[in-house]
Design a protein around this nucleic acid. Structure first.
Length: 904
DNA sequence: CCCCCCCC
């Protein structure tokens, strides 16, 4: 297709103009130019093209036209079929606007918009098509502009094709779509994190094949791509309208009912599997045609349906606009615009300029941050050629410690675990020169008196040495089975003023020294052996390591104030951990703002039990991060401390990547309550003044899902494929985990919970009113624990995926409402405090984009084993469609203003 | 002489 821009792979395209128009909704108005007809607003947003253009006097959208793409000034060919139009997308706006009026200014819900847009079946001329990666990419035109639409449906195959069809068959079939008029079913528009728009058609159907000549003619002419007005970042799925097409501009009065120029679509409604002669492409396990992608429209009969009801005519005398926005009086076109949204230009370029997400949209910080990370994954749009890259979201409150001077900022040496009780008193202790041991405070002259050497000077070639060092970290005792039988050992990390080294104690030395050595204290060490370290296991800043035995000499030193405990330069803040590589080691100071009970975990490899406790850390960045304390480290933070939300220093914790980022204690982790130093004071001050007043913190890990930079996002197709290819052992055990960015198209609202046993979670039976029994564990209680089991339909460019979501995680999709509440709403047909019915709660969840953590596992039901997907965590990506609608409505007002049309 | 670092 030489005149058409090359296909870049992702059906990215084209935003069809979904902006708002006045059209039929516009009242008759004296200033309205005669040429202002059904399509003038289309031009307004679409650029100077094609359809009859309003005189420029009525079209003063200054500042916008120069941003528009060059568009052809041609009319569509006169023989162009009337059903072909992009206007269906524009219609949506009218209907939404009308609905907003009806709702007294409130935004239509996503569900309402969806119903407005029903049946979502525009007809367009196919100029070109191709089939790739189970997608059919159709380039369609309305005679003036073009866009691409992706569908997961196969192109219709000629009879006699092999089954399953080969790639060649599919490509040939796609090619044959050129010149056909296709009806596109079940359309949605989504916006990718990088601002591209993707139009998806769940299904398409060829309704006429004899427009080849038309298509060829158009293919040889350069025609503009349809461009959406630039929407705010976070722009989102807009179910477009598809009322009976109205092209070319007819001359019916603007307020008249829409002439229904077409018979109702002859194929079943969009919710049914498409009756194509060929089955839809089959994805592993998940790709069956969506059985109920849209509920049957239960649209209130009084609502204006764009295709069946005359749109409201908004008499100019009507009451003041009930919108929450400034009453738009719009006295004249020269008056300052009252809208908070300036007239917008409608080019992609502008959407780039608007890119700084948070500022532009007030989007929640977490979502912006997630998106900031998403921009790190060009793989999400593999062939995306544009270079726009919104600036990374700067981590709020982020501070750099690396450049700080040492010394004053360094933490002072702790005297032991209860250091905070004697804070700061060591600071004035004069620093003794190395090699000149001090007189003991009690006249005691320790054996180190002869001299000691700095750690950094210690090598295998120093014959007889004494060192003076702090036990910076004392590791746990570890049992092992070596070549020479079982043994035990522990490590310490020794530190002096300007060096560090690791030392190990084996077997008898463990018995002798483990209890004597105390973390944080300073000792003179003598009689150890020095050997080169193995850098694979030992990451200290020293080339050697030490071994002490039971005959070594270790004597506590009198003071250690000269040896800083930890340098501020070594401390990271929580936001900084996002950047850290998985498995790296970090140290930080933070507040423990929450904690979980100690659990006993069975270690898979050994079968032994190990205690574990999750605690939640926060610092002035406001991000929460979970730290798992393992084994004996659980004892470092006892409950009575935890409940006071203490300040802690964590030295050498490992960065993990479960649900984003987390931390794990290691054998050599040091946990210190109430550390000293500037950094400690900083965090504590923040907590005292601000943090402690906040109820919750956005999580970098744990409950909510934050996608770390290193996380690879997978398409739903990949998720299903990789699950299908995974080892059976993994699928039946842990499951295969993947993270995906997708649209939550719908949550099934029939059977969304089960009465779970509070003890074993099995389904309980109600033996009699207020008497439930668990058939599994025999527990009896008055009230079961109603637990969500949601059926989610996810959708992305590559297809759809059915997932379940169980338990508390599911509450996130349900406006944080408990299953029991939703059940009650359903039972009593009641409304909650926000006036929502149970269907509203489901409806409001639809069409939101999330980052999903999906676990694929074997599941057996009725003796049949299949792979099931479960959402184990999710982070919202964009704001609601409804919010976007609000923005678009503002946009309409601006347009009305510029057209000199008074708003009703 | 160890060198494991865990669980959802």
């Amino acid at each position: 297709m030489p005149p058409l821009p090359p296909y870049h792979g992702t059906a990215e395209c084209s935003e069809v103009n979904s902006s708002f128009s006045s059209r039929e909704n516009a009242p008759p108005h004296s200033s309205r130019p005669p040429a202002y007809n059904d399509h003038s607003s289309y031009q307004l947003f679409h650029g100077p093209s094609s359809y009859s253009r309003p005189p420029s006097s009525a079209h003063p959208s200054a500042g916008s036209s120069e941003h528009r793409p060059e568009t052809s000034s041609e009319q569509p060919p006169p023989d162009f079929p009337p059903e072909i139009s992009f206007a269906f997308l524009v219609k949506f706006a009218d209907a939404a606007f009308a609905l907003q009026q009806q709702k007294g200014g409130a935004c239509p819900s996503a569900q309402e918009l969806l119903q407005l847009a029903d049946p979502l079946e525009p007809c367009l001329l196919c100029l070109a098509a191709l089939h790739a990666k189970k997608k059919t990419i159709i380039t369609v035109s309305d005679g003036v502009s073009w866009c691409r639409i992706a569908s997961t449906q196969l192109p219709p195959l000629p009879p006699g094709s092999s089954d399953p069809p080969t790639e060649e068959d599919l490509n040939a079939a796609a090619l044959a779509l050129s010149g056909c008029i296709v009806r596109l079913g079940n359309i949605s528009i989504t916006r990718t994190p990088r601002g591209k728009h993707i139009i998806l058609a769940r299904a398409f159907q060829v309704i006429s094949q004899n427009c080849q000549a038309l298509a060829e003619r158009l293919q040889t002419q350069r025609r503009p791509e349809v461009v959406f007005p630039s929407l705010p970042e976070g722009g989102h799925t807009a179910p477009p309208s598809s009322s009976p097409p109205s092209y070319p501009p007819p001359s019916y009065p603007s307020s008249a009912p829409h002439p229904s120029s077409h018979p109702p679509p002859s194929y079943p409604s969009s919710s049914a599997p498409h009756p194509s002669s060929h089955p839809p492409p089959s994805y592993p396990s998940s790709s069956a045609p969506h059985p109920s992608s849209h509920p049957p429209p239960s649209y209130p009969s009084s609502a204006p349906h764009p295709s069946s009801h005359p749109p409201p005519s908004y008499p100019s005398s009507s009451a003041p606009h009930p919108s929450s926005h400034p009453p738009p009086s719009y006295p004249s076109s020269s008056a300052p615009h009252p809208s908070s949204h300036p007239p917008r230009a409608f080019s992609r370029d502008e959407s780039v300029r608007n890119a700084p997400f948070r500022q532009a949209t007030g989007e929640p910080e977490a979502a912006a941050a997630v998106r900031g990370e998403l921009r790190q994954f060009p793989g999400q749009e593999p062939r995306c050629t544009d270079t726009r890259q919104a600036p990374a979201v700067p981590p709020a409150g982020h501070q750099l410690y690396g450049q700080q001077s040492r010394g004053a900022d360094d933490l002072q040496a702790p005297a032991g675990p209860q250091r905070h009780q004697s804070s700061g008193s060591h600071r004035s202790t004069p620093y003794p020169a190395a090699g000149q041991p001090q007189q003991g405070q009690h006249g005691l002259r320790p054996m180190g008196a002869e001299s000691f050497i700095p750690l950094k000077d210690l090598t295998a070639y120093v014959a007889k040495w004494t060192i003076r060092a702090r036990v910076d970290v004392k590791g746990d005792i570890r049992k092992y089975n070596g070549a020479r039988g079982p043994g035990q050992l522990f490590n310490v990390e020794l530190k002096d003023k300007d060096g560090e080294i690791r030392a190990t104690f084996f077997n008898a030395a463990v018995d002798k020294w483990y209890n004597i050595l105390q973390e944080g204290k300073v000792y003179y060490f003598r009689g150890g052996s020095v050997k080169p370290k193995n850098p694979r296991f030992n990451h200290t800043r020293h080339d050697y390591e030490l071994t002490f035995d039971e005959k070594s000499s270790i004597v506590e030193a009198e003071s250690g104030a000269d040896i800083p405990s930890i340098s501020r330069a070594d401390l990271v803040d929580i936001r900084g951990i996002e950047e850290k590589e998985v498995n790296s080691t970090v140290s930080l100071i933070a507040i423990v703002h929450d904690y979980r009970p100690i659990q006993s975990i069975t270690i898979k490899s050994t079968g032994q039990q190990k205690p574990k406790r999750d605690v939640f850390l926060v610092d002035e960045g406001g991000r929460s991060l979970v730290l798992t304390l393992w084994g004996e480290k659980t004892e470092t933070l006892p409950e009575e401390q935890l409940c006071q939300k203490p300040l802690v220093l964590l030295k050498s914790v490992k960065v993990g990547d479960w649900n984003g980022r987390k931390l794990d204690s290691q054998g050599n982790t040091r946990v210190e309550l109430f550390p000293d130093g500037n950094r400690a004071a900083e965090v504590q001050d923040w907590w005292n003044q601000e943090g402690s007043r906040r109820g919750s913190f956005a999580s970098l890990s744990g409950g909510g899902l934050a996608v770390g930079r290193k996380e690879i996002l997978k398409s739903l197709e990949q998720v299903a494929q990789e699950a299908a290819q995974a080892e059976a052992a993994v699928l039946s055990d842990k499951g295969v985990y993947a993270t995906s960015c997708a649209l939550l198209e719908r949550i099934g609202d029939d059977r969304f919970s089960w009465p779970a046993c509070p003890d074993c979670r099995k389904k309980m039976n109600e033996e009699m009113p207020r008497c439930w029994q668990c058939p599994s564990c025999r527990k009896q209680c008055e009230q079961p624990n109603h637990t969500y089991m949601l059926n989610l339909s996810l959708m992305d460019l590559t297809g759809s995926l059915r997932c379940s979501c169980i338990g508390e995680k599911a509450e996130e999709f349900m406006a944080n409402t408990k299953a029991e509440t939703v059940l009650l709403l359903a039972e009593h047909r009641a409304l909650d405090e926000q006036g929502r019915s149970f269907q509203d709660i489901f409806a409001d969840a639809n069409l939101e984009e999330w980052i999903f953590r999906i676990c694929s596992k074997y599941d057996s039901w009725m003796d049949e084993v299949s792979i099931k997907q479960r959402v184990v965590a999710a982070a919202p990506l964009f704001r609601r469609v409804g919010e976007q609608t609000q923005h678009r409505l503002d946009f309409v007002r601006t347009a009305f203003h510029h057209l000199n049309i008074p708003l009703p």
